[in-house]
Design a protein around this nucleic acid. Structure first.
Lengths: 209, 209, 209, 209
DNA sequence: CATGAATGAGACTTCATTCAT
DNA sequence: TATGAATGAAGTCTCATTCAT
């Protein structure tokens, strides 16, 4: 039912598994947050959807905000895995860059941003601590910068003409790519935008023009 | 105090002015929403900041959500004025496009998006009615498309090479430009990003490469 | 529009008449109280229906409760007039008694009790001062007792057999008659009940049985 | 403290008893409603009187109106029990009829109608759903009609002379009896009226006159 | 670990009443 | 007199969190 499952822990004969409760709770929470938004989803709702008592939520998560943070953390982990998997693939430069963008931004879009309550879910209370998405982001940026460096060496890309360092190019590309989320009506719509933005940006960096 | 004043109605000697209350209230609300977010700002807080009684808020706005909508509507109006003003200026193509982007996205950034609670402020309850920002957006897109058509005629821009229509180019450009908001730490940071994204995108559309 | 008009003060050429405002306000209030009940009718509503400003209500009535009391007082006056008019008619005993009951209880029913909010209108805040309906009631009771005395003299009625004084008979008759209000679905229904109750009660007092 | 206790569940040593809370709350509410009326009694007041927190009220009753309805429903149940108990007794016709009237109307009077705020308590917001008192009322009417039929068979009562069916007689009797509530100053006063009205009405139906 | 009844601060909203114009 | 903007006490209801079992 959810966009993504909780990780597929094997179940014992009794159907229960020590330690799977938090995952079940987070699955239920994500589902409800996507449907009703953060504010309109009560702890009671989450408990109900996860088939546990309200008090149980507080055994695993100190507060509603912390539950949300755990959700974000899990998402960040999944994004990290995705990105690493794509980077390991053998793909042409442009395809790989686009695939990486999709692995990060597209994944997040499908899980969270496609919800009508995306805005609220980006961070219900002020900002999420940087250590949630920061590490994944740094890793991603470093990898993309490496791809750009290789492309420059190969002569496919000319950053000098655009007056950018590899890191600057990555930063600009990522920022632009994030713009794909705005006003995307569906996943396909989002994907089209992301591709167009990525292509157009990369085109501005091409050496062969 | 606010990022922008409420319209600058001249005050009479008594310090009162017919019809200025809603503006004062919205100013106070914007200030607080930016500081504490929508949820954490109570109607009581707004009333206090606007130096009126709680009940007074309900004379001008039916509910908290409607107050927020009025705020958004006022912002949209201001954006519309800004954009029109920029379009009327005599500027080179690229400068004008960048100026238009700044007039829209930059203005919104300064007023709302630079807040740590930007996400929540985009739309506290699900989505704002399309009629708030829709008209301004349409107008903006049509104007930009016109600029692109002129540039194509002059031979400055080659959309065919990028496989885009003027509207498609505008859509992609705007989407990419919106990405500047992500992770911008300051207004200058934001402006840099916006410029870099705009330049790089336009570079991908140049005919002279 | 109302069940009863405010007294039919002649209007001057300008359509206004000094001193008619209170009547207009009470008319509007009665109409609204009947429709929405006392609590659900705000002073604002009354002012609007009477085409005056809210503040104007407080010129004529100190408070909402006092406005209600004035309404009750006016109704009591009208009931008094009605009853006196019926008493002055030349009618057979039973017909006259029934007519008197209708003049009092029926009149009130049409004005107030037929409303779905009758319960609330009987006295929105605790009890109305006795001096509102008390005098009318005393007058009515005295008159009815007189009618009974005459009937006893004529030999039409035998109170001794029922063990009642004229006043006791009147009291019982009036109490029973008030029961007609309970669960009456329409004015006709109410009138039928009132008649049946009156007839049956009087039948129990007849000398000729 | 209350006019009637909540059902008298035995308390365990700890003073707690599963499921007794709603009863305690209703007891407290009835007490306050009788003293101050529905409007003037706040949920906070009820909570205080029941020694629970405000939120607890909402665990058992969705809203203030629903709490009131539950109160009415409980009263209706008690009336039903009372009436059935009286009907089961072996009593002469007139005594039984009077006892039934007292079991219904008298009981309600003692619980609610004797309050100075009785009017408001009959139904704070428009009308209570018919299914609250309707069933009890139907049962009562059917039983009384049966009593009348038996009395007619025995020759004690002559409905034909009064032009009434058993149901019509019951309807008229009940309506008249309800009139006893009006202006009753005390329970004794009320009881006297009820008896006089009942006697007089039944007298009008006697066959032996 | 698990439960869910209980809590109570806090939010939004209404509206009778006042008062400067 | 008349107005209606402004007030603020009071009310209903929600819900994150706690804790005895």
């Amino acid at each position: 039912m959810g966009v993504i499952d909780s990780g597929g822990a094997a179940k014992s004969a009794s159907g229960k598994m020590q330690g799977e409760k938090p995952g079940i709770i987070l699955d239920a929470a994500l589902e409800l947050f996507r449907q009703y938004g953060y504010r309109r989803t009560s702890m009671e709702d989450i408990a109900g959807a996860a088939n546990v008592a309200k008090g149980t939520l507080y055994i695993y998560f100190k507060s509603k905000d912390e539950l949300f943070e755990a959700l974000a953390r899990r998402l960040a982990e999944q994004v990290g895995l995705n990105v690493r998997e794509v980077l390991a693939r053998d793909l042409p430069f442009e395809d790989k860059v686009l695939a990486v963008l999709d692995a990060k931004i597209g994944f997040a879009f499908r899980l969270v941003l496609s919800s009508p309550h995306a805005a609220e879910l980006t961070a219900p209370t002020s900002q999420l601590p940087d250590d949630v998405f920061g590490p994944v982001d740094q890793e991603l940026r470093a990898s993309l910068a490496g791809l750009f460096r290789d492309a420059v060496k190969r002569g496919d890309v000319d950053l000098k003409a655009a007056g950018l360092t590899p890191e600057g190019a990555v930063d600009t590309l990522l920022a632009a790519a994030h713009g794909a989320e705005f006003g995307a009506k569906s996943e396909d719509d989002f994907h089209d935008r992301l591709t167009r933005i990525g292509r157009l940006t990369l085109r501005g960096l091409r050496a062969d023009l």
